[in-house]
Simulated assay, not measured.
Amino acid sequence: MDWGSIAGVVLALAGVLVAHMLDGGHIGSLIQPAAFVIVVIGTIGAVLLQNRVKVFVRGVRMIGWVFVPPPDKRQEIIDEIRVWSHTARREGLLSLEAFMLATEDQFTAKGLRLIIDGTEPAKLREILDLEINAYESEQRHAARIWEAAGGYSPTIGILGAVLGLIHVMENLSDPTKLGGGIAVAFVATIYGVGLANLVFLPIGHRLKTTVMHEVSTREMLADAFIGIANGDNPRAIDERMTTYLR
C-alpha cells in the first residue's frame, strides 16, 4: 500500500473542504448531483470517444497501481540473473531451460527461450526491444486516458456552468428556483477543475512513472539476456545489473 498516495488524496480534498468551511460555506452546498452527472459522465463519454473501449478499460484497471504499485523486484531479479549467468557459464546455455519452465513472467520466459534456441545477440536485442517498446506503448496509451480526462473535465465543467445559468435565466420569474440553478453552475465548474487537478492529472502522471519503472525492469532483463548470450563474465553482468538499482 502506498500511503503517500492516500495521504495526497486526503490532503487535497481536505484542503478544499476546510477552506470552503472557513469561508462560512457548508459541505452540502458542494453536493450537486446534476453537476456531478454533467462533469463525470460527460468526461467519461469524451474519453471513450477518444480511445477504444479496450484501452479505456485497461486504463481504469491501472488505477490500482496508484495505491498499490507493482512491487520492486529488481533485487530479486538480479539474484536470479546471477544464478542464470553462472549456470550458463558452467553448464552451457541449454541448462537455462529449467529456469525458463519455472518462471511465470512471460518476458523472462521469452528471453530465456531465445537464448536456449541460440539466437544471435544482435537478433536477440532486436526482438526484446520490440517486445519492450510494444509493452511501453500499450501501457502509456492506457495511462493517458487519465490525462485526457484531466483535459476534458474543466471544459465540461464550464459547459455545466453554462447549462446552470440557462436554467437560471429560464426561471427568473420564480425566485425559488434561482438558487439551485446558480449552485449547479458554480459547483459544476468546481467539479471540473477540481477533478482535473486533484485527481485525473495526478493519477495520469503517477501511472506514467510506474510504467517507466516497469519498462526499466524489462530493459534490465534484456541487458542481462544479451550478456548471457554473448558469454560475458558473470561478474561483469552483475556489475551492469547493479547500476539499475541507482
Rank of each mutant, 00 (worst) to 15 (best):
I116M: 09
L93E: 01
I116G: 05
D117M: 10
M100L: 09
L93Y: 10
R89L: 08
T87G: 00
I127G: 00
M100R: 15
E120N: 11
A122F: 12
E131I: 06
T103Q: 08
I116A: 04
T103G: 02
R90V: 15
D129V: 10
L112P: 09
H86Y: 02
L128C: 05
T119Q: 01
L128Y: 11
G111C: 06
A109E: 14
E104D: 13
D117E: 15
E104F: 00
T87C: 04
A102V: 03
E97I: 01
L94M: 14
L124I: 00
F107M: 10
A88R: 04
T87S: 10
R113V: 12
R90P: 04
L101E: 14
T119E: 02
F107L: 10
L112F: 04
T108N: 05
T108Y: 09
D117H: 08
M100S: 14
F107T: 06
L130K: 11
R89N: 11
A122P: 01
A109F: 06
A98R: 15
T119Y: 00
I115G: 00
G92T: 00
K110G: 12
A109L: 12
E104L: 05
R90N: 07
T87K: 14
S95D: 09
L130P: 01
E131R: 05
E131Y: 07
R113M: 14
L114R: 11
Q106I: 15
A102D: 15
D129K: 04
P121H: 06
R90Y: 08
E104T: 06
I115C: 02
A102M: 08
G111T: 08
G118M: 01
F99S: 14
E91R: 08
F99P: 09
L101G: 00
E120F: 07
L128F: 09
L96W: 03
E131W: 04
E120L: 12
L128S: 04
A109R: 15
I127L: 15
L101M: 13
P121M: 05
R125S: 13
L124F: 03
I115P: 02
S95W: 10
G118A: 02
M100F: 01
F99M: 10
A98Y: 13
L114G: 07
T103I: 01
G111E: 08
S95L: 08
K123P: 03
R89D: 09
E97L: 01
I116F: 06
D117A: 07
E91L: 13
F107C: 12
R89K: 13
T87D: 11
L112G: 09
G118F: 02
D129E: 14
A102G: 06
L114K: 11
E131M: 10
G118E: 04
G92Y: 00
L112W: 03
F99N: 13
M100Y: 00
I115M: 12
R125L: 06
E91G: 05
L112R: 04
A98D: 15
T108Q: 15
L96A: 08
